[in-house]
Design a protein around this nucleic acid. Structure first.
Length: 599
RNA sequence: GGUCCGGUAGCUCAGUUGGAUAGAGCAUCAGCCUUCUAAGCUGGGGGUCAUUGGUUCGAAUCCAAUCCGGGUCACCA
């Protein structure tokens, strides 16, 4: 149990003992870290107790403060400042904390909850390469998976590949018409990019054909329907669904190019999945669900044969689930996939990392499953995130205004190289080490940039103002870590903490303010992880790690570790520094960001 | 129009059960390397927390209304 919770419990027990007649509950006890301008470590707010106890806040504070100091052993003193009880945590508490957790490389991990969670993320279409917007999704999903793991959940990382549908046929048609049989091998273009090029080509031709039809006197709406290339794409989709061999072969071939391309991208980013679903495998499952729903009377059929669900009672609209011709729509597939995931993996929760433009879709998905009586409905959680936009507005792959993911990764790694060279930081490294280092820094900066913001807020990314490597960045945290490692190397200490190093720790002198602040921050870490998991918000982990690194840098500047005032202090500071590095590593590891030992 | 989300320093953002004088980073200005890595540290300037009203000991935080920006409401995915 962390200090904040211990304090709340202790205060509750104390108040119940001191004021047996008053009905005090834990919610009335508000505890915060003491603001820097006051002396103390933790502050208990007295105002909420005033009415109930019918005493002045300062009087309550004195009674409670005396009792806590005398009975808990956690506090060495207190001060009351206008209604706030500022408690000073005893040095003994901090030292015993450091001895207990200082060599625990898994500090922050919670006990297993026997709970299984699937996190679906990335979920790309196979008609184009990944772009910057996908990166937010991917990093968020990966970071959230790891955060849920250390919170005690068993996590299945899943990727649902959208490999079928009209948009896939568009790339295929354009490739057939214009590629002259070009392959990734023959063209030297990465498979996903090659296919994406033909998706863009389709839209260019489509626009031209519409323009030609309009010039011939057709109205715009009709032209959009009648453009030959669109008709060809639709015909191709029908052939695909009918299992036409030639179409199917082309589809498999082009998809295989895309998968090979994605594999390279994912590996470069350090992203992996436990389970991969293909919509081409799952899209028929929803259909059965819909037909069963029809039998049960949950759904209804219109005159043209289309199947709908009426959600008007729930403040929503009617929603189509099967077209007049019996084919399924996006929602129908998702119903099937949701059930499949649940039945196959025996999940307690199924998390979907999907952009906020699909909030309504996800709301409807959950509601329909509920009405169909599917148990998977309750476990669905939509981790909704804001889209990444350019200063000029949304990225549109059809118009080629996207920032490509592979390019972005390469640019960041290059930026890391350029800045290291400019600062003369490349001495003493082998070429191989430098490659690794620039990867860590470039990729770390990119991941941190996308993860440090609250997921639900949309973000605007200006490619011209490339991502900074100073200030609130992964680089800053990496640098603090490398500094600590440098000290540990020189002191013949291991980077990974060893329990033996803590056994001999003795502290006679009073802890200094910055020593205590670091310990307070370290002690708080498990709560940060719990909150991040509960709120589905990894940005709080980023925030915490940055603050911890910042605090360490201040400490580093003010106090020497290697040349501490005496041997006791030195041992203490080495232990604090070691644990700081360990926690930074733990936190950043959850975000998928590696920390170098030298930089 | 219905509905959902957002509006905090010039810019990008923290600020979660209501708590003390609203905090970081970037940018800008002034300092700090013979001392454990200056990709760092210290300090200055910079705010009607969109607006108005309400709830109370106390509101950036809760409630209502308004303004602004965005998403969504397809036999698209």
């Amino acid at each position: 149990m962390t200090l904040t919770n211990q304090l709340k419990q202790a205060a509750l027990a104390a108040l119940n003992q001191l004021f047996p007649d008053a009905a005090i509950n834990i919610d009335m006890i508000a505890v915060n870290e003491t603001k820097p301008e006051f002396t103390g470590d933790y502050t208990l707010v007295l105002f909420p107790l005033v009415k109930l106890l019918r005493q002045k806040p300062d009087a309550i504070g004195k009674t409670l403060g005396d009792h806590l100091v005398a009975n808990t052993g956690m506090f060495s003193g207190y001060a009351i400042v206008s209604g706030f009880l500022n408690l000073r945590v005893s040095d003994a508490f901090w030292i015993s904390f450091l001895k207990k957790e200082g060599a625990n490389a898994w500090y922050g991990n919670k006990a297993a909850k026997g709970r299984k969670v699937m996190v679906e993320y990335s979920s790309p279409n196979t008609n184009k390469p990944l772009h910057f917007g996908h990166l937010r999704n991917i990093f968020l999903g990966a970071a959230m998976s790891e955060t849920l793991k250390v919170d005690g959940n068993e996590v299945v990382k899943a990727n649902l590949i959208n490999d079928r549908g009209i948009h896939i046929c568009k790339s295929m048609i354009a490739w057939q018409r214009y590629a002259n049989g070009a392959t990734p091998e023959s063209s030297g273009i990465k498979g996903d990019h090659l296919v994406g090029d033909y998706y863009v080509k389709f839209n260019d031709i489509y626009k031209e054909e519409i323009a030609a039809l309009i010039a011939g006197g057709m109205d715009e709406k009709q032209a959009a329907k009648d453009a030959p290339i669109m008709l060809e794409a639709q015909e191709m989709l029908r052939k695909w669904e009918a299992g036409d061999k030639e179409t199917y072969d082309l589809w498999q071939t082009m998809n295989s190019w895309v998968y090979a391309g994605f594999k390279v991208s994912y590996e470069k980013m350090g992203i992996s999945f436990d389970k991969i679903y293909y919509e081409s495998d799952t899209y028929l499952l929803g259909k059965k669900l819909a037909l069963d729903g029809l039998d049960k009377g949950v759904l209804f059929k219109k005159e043209d044969g289309s199947v709908w669900i009426d959600l008007k009672e729930d403040g929503l609209d009617e929603k189509l689930l099967l077209r007049g011709d019996g084919t399924s729509v996006y929602m129908t597939q998702d119903l099937g996939t949701a059930k499949l995931k649940y039945d196959e993996c025996n999940l307690n929760q199924s998390v979907y990392v999907i952009a906020d433009e699909q909030n309504y879709h996800m709301q409807v998905l959950k509601l329909i499953l509920k009405k169909l009586g599917e148990p998977c409905a309750d476990g669905i959680y939509h981790l909704s995130y804001g889209m990444v936009e350019l200063p000029s507005g949304k990225m549109k792959s059809r118009e080629g205004t996207v920032v490509d993911a592979d390019d972005m990764v390469a640019e960041m790694v290059n930026l890391a190289r350029v800045q290291a060279e400019e600062n003369g930081k490349t001495a003493g490294f082998s070429p191989e080490e430098l490659r690794n280092l620039f990867n860590m820094i470039g990729l770390g900066a990119l991941k941190f940039y996308l993860l440090r913001v609250d997921p639900k807020k949309k973000m605007i990314f200006d490619p011209k103002e490339s991502i900074d490597l100073h200030g609130y960045t992964a680089t800053f945290i990496q640098y603090a870590h490398a500094r600590i490692c440098s000290i540990l190397r020189k002191e013949q200490r291991t980077i990974v903490p060893k329990p033996e190093d803590l056994e001999t720790l003795v502290v006679h002198e009073e802890l200094m303010a910055l020593e205590k602040k670091l310990l307070r921050s370290l002690e708080h870490y498990p709560d940060v992880l719990s909150d991040a998991a509960a709120e589905f918000n990894p940005s709080s982990v980023c925030n915490y790690a940055f603050q911890l690194a910042q605090l360490f840098n201040t400490f580093y500047d003010v106090h020497s570790i290697a040349k501490a005032e005496n041997e006791e202090k030195k041992q203490l500071r080495l232990a604090i520094a070691t644990m700081t590095a360990s926690v930074l590593r733990h936190a950043m590891n959850l975000m998928g960001i590696a920390l170098p030992e030298k930089m």
